[in-house]
Structures are given as C-alpha cells and as structure tokens.
Design a protein around this nucleic acid. Structure first.
Lengths: 188, 188
DNA sequence: AAAATTGGTATTGAGTCGAAACTAAATGGA
DNA sequence: TCCATTTAGTTTCGACTCAATACCAATTTT
C-alpha cells in the first residue's frame, strides 16, 4: 500500500465519475462542460455567480465559457441578469429547471452513500488529507481554491450573531457559509 | 465534517488535476484526451494495449478513440502493430518520446509528494475506502475496474515462483503485476 | 479627460465527440 | 465446408468545445 497506489485509485475514481457525469448530461442534451458550469452555479455564493468566476473555476478562457453559458440560457437552464452596481457584470442564476437537473445529477453520482458507510472519523481524516493537498496544489500553480465560506480564513463566526465575511464585511447566513466562493482561501 | 464535504473537496481536487493536465498537454500540442490515452498505454499490461481497451478505459466510443490514436501516431508518440495471432487486433505501444512525455506529466501532477508527507497508516485507510467506493461504482454502472494485477482476484501469488494470471494461466513478473489490466476484478 | 483595466461577447479554425456505415478477420454452427 | 454472426478497427458526418484574437462597454486610474 503506497502513495503511488492511492494516487492510481484516485485517478481511476476520477475517470469513472467523469464518465458517469458525461453519460448523465448526454441524456438531457447537455455537454459535460455545461453540466459542470451549471453545477458550479447551483453551489456558488453571490460573489461568485459571474461568467468570469465560472471560467476560473473550470480553468477555461472566458470566451469559451461565454458560449457554454449562452447555450445553457437558450435551453432554459439559467437566467442572465445585469448587475445593478457594476453594469459590466452579468449575474447568473440557475432556473428551477436547471437546479432540479443538477440536484438529480449530484444524487446520481455522489459518493455520499458509499462514504456514509464508512467510519466518520475516517472520513474526517481523509477530508483533512485532501484539503491539505488542495492547499498545496492551489499554491504551487496559482489556482484559486473555490472552497465554501465556512472553511475560509476570511470567514468570521460571530456565534449567536451569525457569520461575517472578512473581505466584504457582509453578514452571511448559515446557508451562505456552505456555498462556494471564488475568493476562498484556506487558513494558515 | 461530513460526507458531503469530503465529496466536495474531492470534486475540487478532480477539477484542479484536470486543469493542470490540460495545461500541461497543451504545451506539447496534445489534447487532454490524447494525454489520457497515452498515459493509459504507458500503464497497461499486454492484454490491454488495444484501441478497444483504451475506449473502455476512457468511456468513449471506439470510433472517437480511433481518431485520437491516429493523431498520437502521426505525432510520433505511439506505434501501431498488428497482432500476430489475431490480425484484427492492433497493438499500441508508446514510443520513447511518448513515454518520456507521460513520465514528465505524471511527475508534475502527482499527489505523491503531498501524500508522502502524511502518515502511511492514513494513506492505507484512505486507499481502502476509495477502493471499496470504486468497487461499488463499477458494479452499479457496469464499468470495468481497470486496476493493477496485484489487486486482482485472478492474480495468483506463487511465492518464489512468481505470479500467474488465473484467466490466461500466463506467468507474470513483478513488474507485470503493477500494470493496469482491462480484465481486472477486485476480490470478493 | 485620457489611458488603462475589467467583464463580457463574437468570430474563427483546429479538434473532439457519438452515431452510423463500413471493412476485414475470426468464430460458430448447420 | 459454407454462410451467418461476432469482433476489432476505421471512416465519415454533423454538432459541439476550445483557445486565440479582436472587439465593445463600463469602470478605475492617472
């Protein structure tokens, strides 16, 4: 049992998940990349629902992503809306059709059933291992983490008074801090 | 710390690895899918080095894969050779140029450095968790496992006398049993 | 007020993808 | 043995992704 082997198993797991995700999307006439974008948009917070953020998340150019989003809008999976403050910015929101689809897709390919059968202490260890790997990768290649607020170093837990984002100073709800943020940074 | 969160972290890790792999391949004029195919071919055993096996591994149709392989051959990353026994079968072998490229790519994106820093007992646990997940996924959606022989239920360890594949009855070397096989099945 | 930056869109050319049609070799009966 | 079937691969086609480039408009900087 080596690091090499762990790496291989993980690699294969990636492959299988990608294959299943592709097959699922195809049944609804969506390309993998469109599924990925829509998935992101159902999970990101209000600072992170723009074309630019989607592009950064997926590691693609904004031009490329712009087209995928156009298709998603045409097919009725999401709505575009100009930002009130900054009129350059486009806000993206999945329609109910869109979020239902993603909910179904996530359920189909989630590892949760499998993970639920394993010891929660093991899962905790495992998550921390991967989180530290993520942190490494993020640093060495300059990508963003795209984690949820509740694991972010800018997130402040004000106990009874809810949460506050240390970057924007805005209050965040219990639901908010579960969402993905493009400004996310792990502590330390 | 929940199964949900473990799932998310893993998801993001997938994304990052894909992004890096894409960027790497692009520097050498190769598409992600071509990198994937070539990677597989440097890691598979002699029963698994055919276009059909590549297609199964990647979850694509044989027609699609056929084109990618043509490009890889044209660019000098692999060689095609008709099988001696069965003339329908094409055997694929990476050239030294091809295997060098993949070696470099794997090194660049390996989790091994990060994993090496974590407790080996943890890694063992982690691997076993993911292996059982893999087994689940493989069963529920009818995909093949594509594991290495030494984790396969058909592999027989004859101690001093080396290994034997229970399917083909052929002897396998120490190196052989580290390779990926399309007939692989996990025990139990 | 002009210049630079930022967020997004449109266009183009190379390439992937699945589906379907196809070839050739092996297999399996009668 | 001969013909049907199966198996391994290739080719072609149309829809689509992708990066690169050029572009536009709003914002920020100088």
């Amino acid at each position: 049992m080596s690091a090499q082997e762990a790496n291989d198993v993980l690699e294969r797991l990636n492959n299988l998940q990608r294959m299943e995700a592709r097959a699922f999307g195809l049944r609804y006439g969506l390309q993998p990349v469109q599924m990925d974008a829509l998935t992101y948009l159902t999970q990101c917070n209000r600072y992170s629902n723009t074309p630019q953020a989607v592009a950064e998340y997926l590691g693609l150019t904004k031009g490329t992503v712009s087209q995928s989003l156009k298709v998603l809008e045409q097919k009725g999976f999401l709505r575009k809306q100009a930002d009130k403050q900054d009129k350059r910015i486009v806000r993206l929101a999945p329609t109910s059709k869109g979020s239902h689809l993603i909910k179904k897709a996530l359920l189909a390919r989630s590892l949760e059933p499998a993970l639920a059968m394993t010891d929660s202490r093991k899962i905790a260890e495992l998550t921390s291992v991967f989180r530290s790997i993520l942190r490494d990768m993020q640093q060495t290649n300059g990508r963003k983490a795209f984690g949820a607020c509740h694991t972010c170093r800018f997130n402040e837990d004000h106990e009874k008074n809810g949460y506050v984002c240390g970057l924007t100073r805005e209050p965040l709800s219990v639901q908010d801090v579960q969402l993905i943020c493009r400004e996310h940074q792990y502590p330390q």
